[in-house]
Design a protein around this nucleic acid. Structure first.
Lengths: 384, 384
DNA sequence: CTGAAAGCGCTTACAG
DNA sequence: CTGAAAGCGCTTACAG
């Protein structure tokens, strides 16, 4: 399925790179020394003519530029420049998942947004890198890509190998939403407090039977009930904090772990939750909006009304698309809205600061409870 | 609004980078020579121990690794390695817009998906770069970021400066959805033929009054009617091809240019289209799904029924979220579905091939007309 | 299997 | 304002 037809007229017989283009470029790529020679100046002068980092006479500069054009010189080689300068102008963005999965989650895309904005303004470019798997330590871009600083995005799970590598490389690290990592600047959210607030809101509505649908606790993509052992073995900081926040209000609330953060993962968890015969909660706290939509969808499928029979609350405040929901009267999820772009911007600023040798600013952000139409007062107890 | 509170307990008094970490790392970063010295081997042997590119005795290798650990050496510096090798393992992804805008369009994200998949498998990392503005030639990452090859994504507009720079740098270029660019390997879609098919489908349904809502024709973010002059001045290949495809069936179909590809841009165009007093088309061909949703939304706002009063057809086959639509009975757009991921994969493969010095494969893909519920037979002529 | 040598292409003090 | 020199850290033929 993945083998495209070759475009009939598009390729032609010649290699596209064979096209001559103004000044012929025969032989090896010219370097700055060759340009300087052609211009009749010293290499250092030619360098200055390009970088503007020192005084050069207009005449010398013009000769250098003319020689460069003549030889087809494309400007100083960034590889050599970065070796010499000790900097490459590249900020690494490390994500937990396959990049193609990461892009599927709006949470990551929105964060990237903020990072890209600040990095772009500063002239830095973003290198997308996947966190290394356990079995490939010592390989992969995180080990050998040029990066001046790194931002960990949505790395809840499997952060340790990445951080270890980066620390050894002495690359400054900014960690969004990870537990305090030794040597990394944190950009944090009030996960626990926010979850506490959401739970309190449900308590105010009279809910007592609350179940939590959690994000993954580690990289194993398990799904199912979270018992004490499972919770103790969890490494995902965000997941644990959000869980604790709800438990501060509902100490005995059962939890179900989802395999990931997608609508489908939420649906799977929801099916368990609303299975016939099982005691049905009157409210569900899901740790992401995607999960929440899946839970709502499972509830509707099970013939329950939302919020009349069951309230559902999410986390993130993103816009979610799900066709099943469209058939329902639900217009907006009750959720905790978090400032992704701001978090991304703060992370990028911290990374740039470390790059400059300045003291980076740790940052903490707040989520706001946004009340939509997936939550309501608890239904009257049947026997009440 | 963007100044986060400093996290109370998160920062502490010390610079995170001051943390000692096992072997002290005093003074300057060690280099491979220092490691070799400490291990009692030649630098070349130490290099081989890390790269595995040649035979090294187990003993020598162990001594090198031990010395590296002892000195806190994080492995060969990628900057030096890439200078020496002439390769950096980085593929640039160049986009037309601010990256934060680019991420907002699913079209780009899906394409990036495919690129990331193939690049990731090959161990290459992706450098996100914005196409330079006209007024910043000679600056920005496209000029001085290390990249072995580049993929142009969604660069319809403002490609020329980028391509000129890349050509001078002699960086191989793969262009997704751009007109044949001299020296670039094309990854193309059947924009014209697909649009022709969509138009034919409308013709079969009896539509004669068809209006086209186009993507931008250049970078100026204009919106309004496309007259012959405007069309002649257009530089966006995709826009023009899709326009031509429809015109092959409806030679006189009027066109309105949208300022961008968003639901809101589509809505703006739609408002013009369905303004009172204006002659209303019985069908609209929008050049993207986002635009199509905006048009549908404007039609509903104007009190028209879709598809009974007006049919709307999109392009892309993405999932679109729009709350207004949810209130309507419309479940799926009629649209031309294009294989974004496949296009991305093909582009990445071509880039990798050029990197290896192999002959890259130009690729061409096909869009499929997917009939949803936004199109239907033309309404009976009022006077008919 | 190991070592000595050369050089990738640039920039930056430094002296004029 | 310009030039000669050194060196960023590595890898790769090449000889042993």
């Amino acid at each position: 399925m993945d083998h495209p037809a070759t475009a009939p007229g598009a390729s032609g017989a010649t290699n596209p790179r064979d096209h001559a283009d103004g000044p012929a470029r025969r032989g090896p790529r010219p370097n700055l020394a060759a340009v300087a020679r052609a211009a009749g100046v010293a290499p250092s002068t030619a360098s200055l003519a390009f970088s503007g980092a020192g005084p050069v006479s207009d005449d010398a500069k013009a000769r250098v530029l003319a020689a460069a054009a003549e030889l087809g010189y494309g400007g100083p080689d960034p590889r050599a420049r970065s070796l010499r300068r000790g900097r490459s102008g590249v900020i690494g963005v490390v994500m937990d998942e396959r990049l193609s999965d990461a892009f599927r989650d709006p949470v990551n895309v929105l964060t990237l947004d903020g990072i890209a904005e600040v990095a772009g303004e500063a002239g830095a470019s973003l290198l997308l890198v996947r966190s290394p798997l356990d079995d490939e330590h010592g390989a992969g871009p995180i080990v050998d890509a040029p990066m001046d600083a790194v931002v960990l995005v949505g790395c809840n799970v499997r952060i340790d190998p990445a951080v270890a590598v980066l620390r050894r490389r002495q690359i400054p690290v900014v960690a969004i939403e990870a537990d305090d990592i030794e040597g990394a600047v944190p950009v944090q959210l009030d996960n626990r407090e926010a979850s506490h607030r959401a739970a309190s809101y449900l308590a105010d509505l009279g809910h007592t039977a609350v179940t939590i649908v959690t994000l993954p606790l580690d990289a194993e993509r398990r799904c199912g009930p979270v018992d004490a052992d499972r919770e103790a073995s969890g490494v995902a900081h965000t997941t644990l904090e959000r869980l604790r926040g709800v438990r501060e209000v509902y100490p005995d609330a059962p939890a179900i772990e989802a395999a990931g953060s997608s609508v489908e993962d939420g649906r799977v968890a929801g099916r368990t939750l609303f299975a016939e015969g099982a005691p049905t909660p009157t409210a569900v706290v899901a740790q992401s909006d995607l999960l929440a939509v899946g839970v709502v969808s499972a509830a509707l499928d099970a013939g329950l009304r939302v919020p009349e029979d069951v309230s559902v609350i999410g986390f993130d405040g993103i816009t979610v698309d799900d066709s099943l929901l469209h058939r329902s009267p639900i217009r907006q999820l009750t959720t905790l809205v978090q400032p992704f772009e701001q978090k991304g911007r703060a992370a990028a600023r911290a990374a740039l600061a470390m790059l400059e040798g300045a003291e980076p600013q740790p940052a903490a952000f707040r989520s706001e409870l946004r009340i939509g139409d997936t939550t309501g007062p608890v239904r009257r107890a049947l026997g009440g």
